[in-house]
């Protein structure tokens, strides 16, 4: 089965892959909620949560190095939190004779944000890599997201691949006409011109999508679509899935309570 760069799903056999998508979605969301609720500086709890996330990665048979690297993608955003180190109140650490002083609270908050972001990201990666998107859609329906919204999501996902291919064709057509643009030497027009020509492509893509939307509607109507979103019922949760769900929720409750018990 060929892998598309738009589809992070990894078709493996693992207990996590086999788990009901509804259970996975709920547990992943609750996990991220618990991470968010963990107080800053509760390092023991945060480490335990990290261990849970890594266990999920291992159980899902994913490459740990890959997940740890990929989870770092959001870390540049932490630059936004960097100034806390200087501006937060409280006890300060003098950095020798440089005249720079750092706030202890600020450092703690920055590191906590870093860590929470990183751990949450790992779980989101596990969810996306071990659950096919159609299953995720079913899970979204099951947790009572508006049916219309899930239907729009489903269509969007289906046409992502088609339209990204179209966008790539437009880009290739541009690049093959203009050669490799060398921005440094300002070949290929001014930045403003380049931006507007990218805009022209966006307009072109929009027009085609609009027309495609009409054709898709025709195809749906031809098979009886009447504006109401209908789908098959969800099978009941198996006893096994239910056990995993309950066990997972209990574990997460304990992780939630820990820092509060020892604070």
């Amino acid at each position: 089965m060929h892998v598309h760069f738009l589809d992070p799903y990894q078709d493996l056999r693992s207990p996590v892959h086999a788990l009901d998508a509804r259970v996975k979605l709920v547990l992943a969301l609750v996990f991220i909620l618990v991470v968010s609720l963990t107080p800053n500086g509760a390092w023991a709890s945060l480490l335990l949560l990290f261990a849970v996330a890594v266990s999920a990665v291992l159980l899902a048979g994913l490459n740990v190095g890959y997940v740890l690297r990929r989870a770092g993608l959001a870390l540049p955003f932490a630059l936004a939190a960097l100034p806390l180190v200087f501006t937060a109140p409280g006890a300060r650490i003098e950095l020798g004779a440089t005249g720079i002083s750092l706030s202890q609270i600020g450092i703690e908050r920055l590191l906590s944000i870093f860590f929470k972001s990183y751990v949450s990201m790992q779980m989101a990666i596990v969810l996306a890599s071990a659950t096919s998107f159609p299953d995720l859609l079913q899970a979204m329906r099951a947790i009572r997201l508006p049916k219309l919204l899930v239907a729009i999501f489903g269509l969007m996902w289906r046409y992502l691949f088609v339209l990204v291919d179209e966008a790539m064709r437009l880009l290739r057509a541009r690049d093959s006409r203009s050669g490799a643009l060398d921005a440094a030497r300002n070949v290929g027009g001014s930045i403003s011109w380049r931006a507007r020509s990218a805009g022209g492509m966006a307009g072109n893509l929009f027009m085609r999508s609009f027309e495609r939307g009409d054709r898709i509607y025709d195809a749906m109507a031809a098979r009886g679509y009447d504006g109401e979103v209908r789908s098959m019922r969800h099978p009941a949760l198996s006893a096994q899935s239910l056990r995993v769900l309950v066990a997972g929720l209990v574990l997460l409750s304990v992780l939630f309570a820990l820092p509060r018990l020892f604070a």
Partner: peptide, 18 residues
């Protein structure tokens, strides 16, 4: 609604690659 919103959401997503 569903077909048009779905395909246009995909379009904006794909447009972000331009």
């Amino acid at each position: 609604q569903v077909p048009l919103m779905g395909v246009l959401a995909a379009c904006i997503f794909a447009g972000q690659m331009l």
